[in-house]
Amino acid sequence: MRSSRSFEGEHSLRILAIFSMLMAFASISTDLYLPALPPVVAALRAGHGAVELTISGYLIVSSLGQCR
Rank of each mutant, 00 (worst) to 15 (best):
R2I: 05
R2V: 08
R2A: 11
R2G: 00
S3K: 10
S4Q: 09
S4T: 08
R5V: 06
S6D: 14
S6I: 02
E8S: 11
E8C: 03
G9A: 07
E10G: 04
E10R: 12
S12M: 09
L13N: 12
L16G: 12
A17V: 04
I18T: 09
I18Q: 07
I18W: 03
S20E: 03
L22I: 08
L22H: 05
L22R: 12
M23R: 12
M23P: 00
F25N: 06
F25H: 05
F25Q: 11
A26T: 12
A26G: 05
S27Q: 08
I28V: 15
I28W: 04
S29F: 15
T30M: 15
D31F: 11
Y33C: 05
P35Q: 00
P35C: 00
A36H: 05
L37Q: 11
L37G: 01
P39I: 00
P39F: 00
A42E: 15
A42W: 01
L44Y: 04
L44K: 06
A46E: 11
A46F: 06
G47H: 10
H48L: 13
H48S: 11
G49R: 12
G49F: 02
G49L: 00
V51P: 02
E52I: 03
E52S: 14
I55R: 12
I55F: 13
S56K: 07
G57V: 09
Y58V: 05
Y58K: 06
L59H: 08
L59Q: 13
I60D: 02
V61Y: 11
S62N: 13
S62D: 07
S63A: 15
S63R: 08
S63K: 06
G65D: 03
G65S: 06
R68D: 10
R68G: 15
R68S: 09
R68P: 14
